[in-house]
């Protein structure tokens, strides 16, 4: 068994890095943050169902990066600089001043959109890393809950995402075996949605019948202790992030 950290440690770590990436606003900082997160996720992987969330987050990040680049090429304010290629300009009605479709794509314009896309992708990847590295169930139990219904809703929401990855794999496989190689989004989304919903409802029912949220206070069987290693990780990340931002 790997030594376990406090469930909030990796979330604090991720939030600090996110702050550093956004404030430093540098592609190098963003890329190294992704590098560190990838290394950590690989080093601490286990077979938990949420372990794969990081890779999903990376993929979502990549899609956003591409979309941002395409939008950056097609729409926007011209930034002067070295022209790489020119897209024909599409005339827009006069009531849409200041917006241009197409036109010259300069190196500066392309790199600035890629840069923005990269920052957004990094933020998503870091959230994914935090989800991958700590069990969402554990995180949830450390949070104080004020209202019963909100607690239940949180459980449903957090248990939904990691299970999606697992079920999606299974359903895609089954449909390939039906001889449908190209699966429409409907073919995947409908069974997936149905299953996640019913699972979440079952989980909520189980929690409900086991007394979750009945008592205002709750005791701890094995309290999550904040340990030296947790403080160390947070301190190092804090020092590193402020160095990056101030540099």
């Amino acid at each position: 068994m790997k030594r376990s950290l406090h469930p909030l440690t990796m979330w604090i770590w991720a939030l600090l890095l996110i702050a550093a990436v956004v404030l430093a606003d540098s592609a190098w900082v963003a890329l190294s943050a992704i590098g560190v997160a990838t290394a950590l996720v690989i080093a601490r992987r286990d077979n938990s169902p949420w372990g794969g969330s990081y890779w999903i987050a990376l993929r979502i990040g990549a899609v956003i990066l591409v979309i941002r680049a395409v939008v950056g090429i097609l729409i926007g304010v011209p930034i002067p600089g070295r022209t790489i290629f020119t897209v024909p300009i599409i005339d827009l009605p006069s009531w849409m001043p200041g917006i241009r479709l197409g036109g010259a794509v300069t190196l500066e314009r392309l790199s600035s959109s890629l840069h923005e896309g990269l920052i957004i992708a990094t933020v998503i990847a870091l959230f994914g890393a935090a989800t991958s590295l700590t069990s969402p169930h554990k995180v949830l139990r450390t949070l104080p809950f004020f209202i019963y219904e909100i607690g239940i809703t949180l459980v449903i929401a957090t248990s939904l995402f990691p299970q999606l990855a697992h079920s999606a794999r299974r359903i895609r496989l089954a449909q390939q075996l039906r001889g449908h190689e190209k699966i429409s989004w409907r073919g995947l989304a409908l069974p997936l949605l149905e299953e996640s919903l019913s699972r979440s409802l079952q989980l909520a029912a189980a929690m409900d019948s086991r007394g979750f949220g009945v008592s205002r206070k709750r005791s701890r069987y094995r309290p999550e202790k904040w340990q030296m290693s947790d403080s160390a990780i947070v301190a190092i990340t804090m020092a590193l992030s402020s160095a990056l931002v101030l540099a």
């Binding site: 938990s48 029912a205 007394g211 206070k217 005791s219 701890r220 094995r222």
Partner: peptide, 23 residues
Amino acid sequence: NGFVTDIVEEELAFGMEALNFPH
């Protein structure tokens, strides 16, 4: 689908924690 925690011991304790049983 009804398990709330990841470890056997914690799962057994979950209901008692929720009802604030003494340690």
